[in-house]
Write a protein that binds this DNA or RNA. Structure first.
Lengths: 234, 234
DNA sequence: ATTAAAACATGATAATTATCATCTTAAAAA
DNA sequence: TTTTTAAGATGATAATTATCATGTTTTAAT
């Protein structure tokens, strides 16, 4: 009994519960949820699921950062989306009833909870607000994906790099030394903007020389946000 | 009364009702739908809605072909998606409660019905199968968008052209003379694959010389589907 | 029917970006 | 600690793609 209470509290106070579609769940539903979830710790570099795998549920990101990516024929890893704590992972494939279209890997050590599909479908059918939230979350992803698709075509690599740096700053914030909190390798950064690693490094170098950013070891500090924005715009 | 029956039948037998999320609606719901819809005829080149507009509902494509696109700063029109009869338009913005992110224009004369948001939300809240269908449809769009995003980065313009020609063939079929049924200008085709119009024309010319396709005036006939597939793959 | 405008086409050239090679530095493993 | 490996950096060069110029054909408008 004591045990049950503790688990319930855990889900109830979890950041995912506060930020994701799960915020629509009632007290009773959260208790049900707490009983059916499984918690995993995933080390940096490890996969949560791989392309083609059948996941049969969603993952709640409690802590850490992950990337959704797809490996190309020539060995390059295109990053489609970064996920951080509070977000759900694998909603799309679950709803579409399909194996994962992308691979999910940890970029920083993660803690995730797995919620089986049956549970989600129950919530979806019995809780209108939850289904609407879930729907809106997928819609948000769709909008972002479409806009990124457009940016990929209409903007140069330089513009996309500026844009991505600003995004990373907005979404993940900065450390005390003002460098970006997300620690991406140059290769991963290249994977987000869709370019060759060398091109990415070269442009970072250029931005550094222009005073737009400062390279602190492998970390990146944004120095001139206004100029970066102007660059990204047009 | 006679009038009401006719309108109901119209919705009931409509292709959109058969192919879209609306297939989950009950007889009673279809009657409600028929009463609240408005039908529009849109001529080739005209807009159904423009970026930034608040639509407050969805459009059912009864007939014709449309494009969802976004104009870039340099005047180029990036096409995000083509829609054909049986599909819904504007679901995303309606659910997200946002003005349209893209402009919808007719590529071939269209007939569309407008369904007000209130009606859709009612169905969404009272009909689980409908909400699931709608959800799956958005998920399908998301998957496609992500895959296209990846293709945009990982494939060359030549590969994307081959891929797009095959897609157009699959999705819209061919006329009696075996040319593609969708009549896109070279500029529009370029807008889909995300390249300059001249590059698109040049590559079509190359494909023609290689015997992969045949240019019949402005129309395109696929001659060697196998070779096109191989080209698109890698 | 004639004129104007739009769409298609192709060459020349410039700009962008990828690839290969090599080197340095940092991190991990022995 | 030493050694090995991975990540970062930069130059040289090639490949891809965009842009500009110009001409032709098709379509639409007068």
């Amino acid at each position: 009994m004591q045990q049950t209470t503790i688990v319930m509290n855990k889900c109830d106070q979890c950041i995912v519960r506060q930020l994701s579609s799960l915020k629509a769940l009632s007290k009773e539903e959260v208790i049900k949820l707490a009983g059916s979830k499984t918690t995993y710790k995933i080390k940096k570099g490890e996969a949560i699921f791989e392309e083609g795998e059948v996941t049969n549920g969603v993952f709640c990101v409690k802590d850490g950062v992950g990337k959704l990516s797809k490996l190309s024929a020539n060995g390059k890893d295109q990053i489609v989306k970064l996920v951080k704590s509070g977000e759900l992972l694998g909603q799309r494939s679950m709803i579409s009833n399909e194996p994962a279209n992308l691979t999910a890997k940890a970029i920083a050590d993660m803690e995730v909870c797995f919620i089986p599909k049956s549970e989600i479908i129950n919530f979806f059918n019995s809780n209108n607000q939850f289904s609407l939230n879930l729907m809106q979350s997928v819609c948000e992803d769709l909008k972002e994906s479409e806009n990124e698709k457009i940016a990929l075509v209409q903007k140069t690599v330089k513009q996309r790099l500026a844009e991505t740096l600003l995004h990373l700053h907005d979404e993940f914030g900065e450390d005390k030394d003002q460098t970006l909190k997300v620690q991406l390798t140059r290769e991963e950064l290249a994977g987000i903007i869709g370019t060759a690693t060398e091109s990415c490094i070269r442009l970072l170098s250029d931005f550094n020389k222009l005073g737009l950013i400062e390279l602190v070891g492998k970390k990146i500090k944004l120095k001139d946000v206004r100029a970066l924005k102007k660059l990204a715009e047009n």
